[in-house]
Design a binder for these strands. Structure first.
Lengths: 336, 336
DNA sequence: AAATTATAGGTAACCGCTTTCCTTCTCGTC
DNA sequence: GACGAGAAGGAAAGCGGTTACCTATAATTT
C-alpha cells in the first residue's frame, strides 16, 4: 500500500550522510564535540527522513525511560477526569510521556500491570491503588523506580502520597448538616470499604458528630456502597425508616444522586425534609435539580502535586514534603 | 533501603543454573528442544528469582510488542468508561496489554502521541481521533502497524472503523419527539463541530424531520456546544425565545442536563412544556429528576468490536467486515 | 558395528541506540 | 620545528533478549 517504510534508524541516517552512527547520536543528544556544519546537516537529514528514535532501544540502553506510568483504580469514575489532566499537563511540561493503566479496581489486575511496568523501564509511577491491593506494595518496592501514591494510600505513614484531606471534607459536610438542623439525625452513606478516602471520610463524619456532642448510632451508617443503584436502594430504605427531618452525608456525589432520586420517589422533599451533601463536586452537580451541595476536592491540584512530587523523586532531588493532604472546600447549593 | 535489586535478567538465571542464556530463552518461549527436567528446573528458578522479561528488549529484538495503544480524544468524558472496559477486557483476553493515551482533544498532542507510539513498536492502535486532527492520518499510515478508528472516524469510507450508528440514534430520538407532539418544533443542540458523531447525529435529525415532512429551520439548530455551561446558556436563550410546547434533541446527555436545568430555572416544565431526549445514556440518566430520555449507545460492544477488529488485523487474518455501525436504542424516560 | 538421526543444548550475531575510550588533525607555543 | 592541547569524529562494547546455525551425545536403523 504505502511505498515508504517508516523504520528509519540512525544507521540509515548515518549511511546516507557518510558519517558514523555515533555522530548522529551525538548530534541528537546535544553533545559538544560535533562541529556546527555537521550538526546542521545531520539535523536536516533527520528532519527530511522523518526519523524518530526507537524508544525501546533508548530505554533499553539507558536503563530508564522518559515515560511514567499512571496506574488508576478506575478511570471511568468522573472524579479522575480532572486529576488525570493535572498529572498529564505537569508531566508533559517536564518532558515525560504518560502511560495510563486501568486496574479496574481489581487487585490482581493491578499486580499484573505493575509487573509489566517493572519490565518496561519506566521513569516513575503514580498509583491510585485498587481496593485490597496491599500485596502490590511488594512489587512496587521491588522495582527500583520512584513511585507516589495518589488519591488513595495504604498507610498514613506511607512513603509518599498526595490526596485530598478527606477527613476534613466529611467533617465540613457533616458539621454543616448538623448546624443546619440542630438536633436531628445525620446519616452517613459510605463508598467502597478498605480504601483510604472512605475510611478518612468516615472518620471525619464521626469527629464532626463528636465535636457537636452528638451520640453516633450505628443505624445511621451504611457501608460499602458502590454505585447509583446501591445508593438508590439504600435511599428507599432510609425513606421508609427515618422520620424527617434528617440529613444525609454521602461519601460521593454519585451516591448522593442515587439517594436523591430515591427520596424523591418516596415523596420526601429535599432540602425541606432531608438535607444532603456529597463529596467531589462532579460537573453535573450544579445543574441537577435540586443542585447538589457538595465538598469540592482539589482534583487538578492533586494531579499536579502528585506529578511534581514524582518529578522531584525522579530527578533524585531531596523532597521537602513527602505527604500532602490537600484542602477541600464546602459548596452549599440547593440540597442543604 | 531495599537489599535486593530487582533487575533479574536471563543472564542471572543462566549463571545460577550453569546453562546458557539460550536455554533459558527457549524454555520461556516454549521451544521443544529442551528436556523436561531442564525445563522444570529453569521454570523453578525463574519463579524463585522473580524474573520478569524486559519488554523493551523483547520488543526491540522482535520488532513488535504485545502492547496496543488506545489513543482517546478525552478519557474524562463519561462516555468512555464503558467503551474502555470493552477494549481492555477483549484485548487482555487475547494477551495484549493496553496503553491508554489521552489526546485531550488537541490535534497536535495527538500527533505527538502517535509519533511516540510509532517509536514504541506497539502491536496495534485503536484511535478515537481528536477534533480536526486529520493531519494525524499521515503518521498513522507511516507507521506500519494496524490501526482502527473507534467512535469517530475521518471519512465514511475510511479503512477500518467501529462506531455507534449515530445517525440512527438521532433519527430515533427526533422521530420520537415529533410523534410525541406532532406539529410542534423540534430543536437540535449539537456537540463539537467536525467530528463524525456530531455530523451523523445532525444528519439523523434532519432526516427524521424530512421523513415527517417538517420543514427544517435554521433557528432550531445550535451548534458546537462543548459543556454543561454552554448548554445552560443556550437553554436559557431557548426558553426566552420559543413558545412552549416544543421539543429539544440534545446531541449528548451532558448537554441535555445543562438544558434541563436552564429550562427549569426559566419556569418551563419538562416534559409538559418541553420534551427532551439526549444521547448516550450516562449512568446518572435514570436517576435524574426528571429522569432523562436518551438513546443508549452500545458502548461496551463498540469497545469489544473495535478490539476484535484490531486483533484480526494484528494476526494478519482477513477481515470480513471492515466497518461497523452498531445499533443504538431509544430509551424513553420522564423527559419525553 | 557402522551409519543415520534425533535430542539437548550452546555460539554468536543482531535489534537500535548510547557512551567510553581512541584516533586523527589542526593549531598555538616556546 | 617539535611538542602538547584541543577539536571533531569513529570503533566497539553492551543494554536484555531471540534465533539461525552448529555440535556433541544418545538412540535408532540396517
Amino acid at each position: 500500500m504505502r511505498s515508504t517504510s517508516n523504520n528509519i534508524t540512525m544507521k540509515d541516517i548515518a549511511k546516507r550522510m557518510h558519517v558514523s552512527v555515533t555522530t548522529v547520536s551525538k548530534v541528537l543528544n546535544g553533545h559538544q564535540d560535533i562541529s556546527e556544519p555537521t550538526r546542521q546537516r545531520v539535523l536536516q537529514t533527520v528532519k527530511e527522513m522523518g526519523y524518530v528514535p526507537n524508544l525501546m532501544a533508548v530505554n533499553l540502553r539507558c536503563n530508564k525511560g522518559n515515560m511514567v506510568g499512571l496506574v488508576l483504580s478506575d478511570i471511568s469514575k468522573p472524579y479522575f477526569s480532572k486529576v488525570i489532566h493535572g498529572y498529564e499537563s505537569t508531566l508533559l511540561a517536564a518532558g515525560y510521556q504518560t502511560l495510563i493503566f486501568n486496574s479496574l479496581e481489581q487487585a490482581d489486575r493491578q499486580y499484573q500491570i505493575l509487573k509489566q511496568i517493572a519490565s518496561m523501564y519506566l521513569a516513575g509511577v503514580i498509583i491510585d491503588p485498587a481496593q485490597n491491593s496491599q500485596s502490590s506494595k511488594e512489587v512496587l518496592d521491588s522495582m527500583d523506580i520512584p513511585y507516589v501514591f495518589s488519591n488513595r494510600y495504604f498507610a498514613q505513614d506511607e512513603d509518599y502520597y498526595v490526596a485530598a484531606d478527606n477527613k476534613k471534607a466529611s467533617y465540613l459536610a457533616t458539621e454543616h448538616l448538623i448546624q443546619r438542623k440542630p438536633g436531628f439525625p445525620v446519616l452517613c452513606i459510605n463508598g467502597p470499604d478498605n480504601i483510604s478516602p472512605t475510611i478518612r471520610r468516615y472518620e471525619g463524619y464521626l469527629e464532626a458528630l463528636k465535636d457537636a456532642s452528638i451520640q453516633q448510632k450505628s443505624e445511621w451508617v451504611f457501608n460499602n456502597l458502590y454505585d447509583l443503584s446501591d445508593a438508590y436502594t439504600i435511599g428507599k430504605k432510609i425513606a421508609s425508616t427515618f422520620q424527617p427531618p434528617f440529613s444525609i452525608f454521602c461519601s460521593t456525589d454519585q451516591l448522593a444522586v442515587g439517594v436523591l432520586r430515591a427520596l424523591h420517589d418516596s415523596g420526601l422533599r429535599v432540602p425541606e425534609d432531608v438535607g444532603i451533601v456529597g463529596v467531589d463536586d462532579v460537573d453535573m452537580a450544579p445543574y441537577l435539580t435540586p443542585s447538589l451541595s457538595t465538598v469540592s476536592l482539589p482534583k487538578e491540584s492533586i494531579g499536579e502535586t502528585s506529578a511534581n512530587l514524582l518529578i522531584t523523586l525522579m530527578n533524585g532531588q531531596p523532597v521537602e514534603t513527602p505527604r500532602y493532604l490537600l484542602d477541600p472546600k464546602l459548596i452549599i447549593r440547593e440540597t442543604s
